[in-house]
Design a protein around this nucleic acid. Structure first.
Lengths: 112, 112
DNA sequence: CAAATATACATAATATTCTTATGTATTTAA
DNA sequence: TTAAATACATAAGAATATTATGTATATTTG
């Protein structure tokens, strides 16, 4: 796990990218997918994830459908059309930020 | 300027890297240097910078010397030996984080 | 089969770290 | 001479994370 200060500000971008890539997903699924892709380096915490999902929904970037799996509720999130644009924006913003940081820190980042 | 959420968690790394590169610097100088290198994209605010400098000093990563330029005080910061190690750590951590994020966001970052 | 672990949601208290605003004061440029 | 730049600093507030807590079902393991 990273000293996750760095994660601040990137969480929503990560979440939306997952939805962009995999279509509708539920919260727990997102945490597991991100954990898997990052080889356990990024573990989204519930206390951060759920409020973020709710905020994105309130902002109009996500919609939800509730499903019952047995007796257990599962809440699926998907990107709205606005959300589809937003995630592209977010990713570009992140890429630009990294470019600037590479310049400042004088580093080359390797492919992961 | 970025939606500077992304900057959160990177500020101390940026500051220490500047000191690593240029030797002793004072606060205002750091803001100007970073602004210049980033082509105005990163503008450190005083309300964030000075507390960060004080914190880094308290943590033992920086030392200070005060100088008078005319009647005006100028406070120079430099890396301590511990600070020299810390900045390398921080930069590595950032590079690793970016690698993971590139994997997650499926992007290639260009040279700035 | 009982107990531990994993799945699945959520919120509250707290911590951290930023922005914005405010304050003080000197120096330089218009 | 007045505005802008230089140079420090702190306080109020906002945003966003961590940690803890709560509830409940489903699955795995000893």
């Amino acid at each position: 796990m990273y000293s996750s200060e760095l994660l601040k500000g990137s969480l929503k971008t990560i979440v939306m990218q997952q939805l962009k890539e995999h279509g509708k997903m539920y919260g727990y699924e997102i945490t597991q997918k991100v954990k898997e892709i990052s080889s356990n380096k990024i573990q989204l915490t519930e206390g951060a994830l759920y409020p973020a999902l709710h905020a994105l929904e309130a902002e109009g970037f996500l919609t939800t459908e509730t499903e019952f799996i047995g007796k257990r509720v599962r809440k699926y999130y998907s990107l709205t059309p606005t959300g589809q644009n937003k995630v592209l924006e977010k990713i570009n913003e992140f890429a630009e930020f990294v470019s600037t940081m590479k310049l400042i820190l004088q580093i080359e980042t390797k492919k992961a």
